[in-house]
Design a protein around this nucleic acid. Structure first.
Lengths: 341, 341
DNA sequence: TTGTTTTTCCAAAACGTTTTGGCTTTGCAA
DNA sequence: TTGCAAAGCCAAAACGTTTTGGAAAAACAA
């Protein structure tokens, strides 16, 4: 905390603080000899620029924000680790800090956080996760002229950079696979009904059914919470009624784990009796019983790209190139194979 | 981004910026009438104090830092979600920001991050996770006089506030339970060998054996990575040799899941043939096959308490009270019951 | 030589707060 | 009336940078 400022270096070398500042910033109007002297003593004295002063003067913060939705976090969402690693890693690449907050979706806290983030100039930009169909955050940030990038696109009438992170086009592939295995009566367990992920993936589910000439049963479509509990409880319900579905398509791996557990408890064979698929490609999907058919989503990459895009918006690159998102992969395991043990 | 400053308010009301500042900060030397006027126009004009300016002047940042260890994150550690929610929630309570970075343990990046954090005055304090036996970070932060709190205590000769988050005393209880079930030959799959969690829990394991008059087999003790893969691979190894252990104690639930999967693959009945226990109490432990005996750790609470403690250090409370950490609970499920199906 | 350009440096202002050390004005007591 | 205290307000300095707009010195050109 014994902090050395640019002024100390200047005094120490009998130079002006202007020259020291400019030397450190690499301006050409300081001779090589003095530049070297300055760099050396700076290093030697352990100089690190004071962020607050720099921010105040430069009028930017070199920080970006990410607000976890707490429902999200509390349920131990496995994506959170990958997401944060990606965000933090890429932020480091660009030399900016990552400020993480947490709030329930559409809560007062959430709105307070976003107001503070933008108006008190805490961050240069924001990453938006868990996009809702109508998302007040995009309108707000747009109005505030605060740069942002989203993991998916909402329905708001605002043009903004968004990754296509819902991967709804993978659902038809899942369904084609299920049909080829002989499953016919498909259920769907989704997320909260206003999340874009849920809406898009449900849409993909319907399209998949249609493309495969399978019937759509509205009574077999459920909302959930991305967590195991939704899968577990919904499945218990589902098993009570006849006719049963013969396959359950889940919006997340976690949900699918809950389904598997319920089936096991009710002595229904996952795979041979009822097919189950997840979405996400968590490490545990390899180790479940039976191993889970899922879509392997490159969340870590996605997060990195979100930050990369945001930085190009902030730094006012001429055109924002939204980087290609790596293709997800359908991983077929025993949970969706009728001939499985 | 059209930002309104304290000066705007002053001009608008024909007052000095001093008065406005003092009114907003609640000083007594401003009349009630003007205070109200100021508060009203401030709200009306949407004033939010500029953080950088405030930090610069007040010489504190109202932010705390947390550095994820990336090996940690990449393996999809389930504790990360709870930890971060706890940190972020409690940070919000105290009105401070949480800055999250990521770096591999003992790497150059890690040292660069900590240097920047402390010297450029980005944060008022730091939370330390994944404590190592000899942890350079505690010496460093101590030398820099940067406040910090750790989730567990290292061996360094420095006095600092640390929670007792390794809960090694729960291991004897696990072992007593295992013994009472009739298991005798116990294996242990841990974490990285220099982490305090690993060391303490292994110690607890040994003590538990001794207390229960069970033999300690060094060849049955393994390091790992807290993730499923370690459990899976170690178990495959373990099953090749005779005599086998009849129970496997794991340092984390994830590790235990890997163990369960390996056992299933090799047609060994978890529970009746080989007992398995985890540590952590993840939601999935309820849903595994068989359900996993584990120790339910209040990670979220622990994280909150870490922040609370840190804030009391920062705010220079006379004495630092390290809050009581809620008691973990041993949850016994079928994975460690011999009579189980 | 004089004039011109280039190189190298710097004083001062600015960013938006907080804080110090007052200065007026008012009210009250003597 | 004077003296004094309290209440209410403010100018200016400070925090540590960056940036503007030169100025002095050196190098070069004529």
């Amino acid at each position: 905390m014994k902090t050395v400022s640019i002024r100390d270096i200047a005094r120490h070398l009998n130079l002006s603080i202007t020259t020291v500042s400019r030397a450190l910033d690499g301006y050409p109007d300081v001779s090589n000899r003095t530049r070297v002297r300055i760099l050396e003593t700076a290093a030697e004295m352990g100089y690190v620029p004071n962020q607050a002063a720099r921010q105040l003067r430069r009028r930017k913060t070199d920080a970006i924000g990410y607000v976890l939705s707490s429902s999200h976090a509390r349920f131990n969402d496995p994506t959170i680790a990958d997401t944060l690693s990606g965000l933090a890693d890429e932020a480091a690449v660009h030399g900016v800090d990552l400020i993480v907050s947490i709030a329930p979706p559409d809560s007062d806290q959430e709105s307070a956080i976003f107001k503070r983030l933008s108006r008190s100039q805490k961050v240069d930009g924001v990453i938006l996760g868990r996009i809702r169909k109508e998302d007040w955050r995009v309108q707000f940030l747009h109005d505030e002229a605060m740069p942002f990038v989203a993991f998916a696109r909402s329905n708001d009438a605002v043009d903004y950079p968004a990754l296509e992170g819902s991967y709804e086009y993978m659902l038809p592939r899942i369904i084609t696979h299920l049909k080829s295995e002989g499953y016919q009566r498909l259920a769907f367990i989704g997320g909260d009904s206003d999340s874009v992920f849920h809406i898009n993936r449900l849409e993909g589910f319907k399209e998949g059914l249609e493309a495969n000439q399978l019937a759509y049963y509205p009574e077999l479509v459920f909302t959930g919470n991305y967590a195991s509990s939704a899968g577990y409880e919904t499945t218990l319900q589902l098993l009570k009624n006849q006719p049963r579905p013969d396959a359950i398509v889940c919006i997340s791996d976690e949900t699918a784990f809950g389904v598997l557990h319920a089936l096991r408890e009710k002595k229904v064979k996952a795979g041979s009796e009822i097919g189950v698929t997840g979405f996400g490609g968590t490490a545990e999907s390899t180790y479940s019983d039976p191993p889970l058919t899922t879509v392997d989503i490159p969340i870590y990459q996605l997060a990195r790209q979100a930050v990369a895009t945001l930085m190009s918006v902030i730094r006012k690159k001429k055109e924002i190139v939204i980087p290609e998102v790596p293709e997800p992969v359908l991983v077929i395991r025993q949970s969706s194979i009728i001939g499985a043990t």
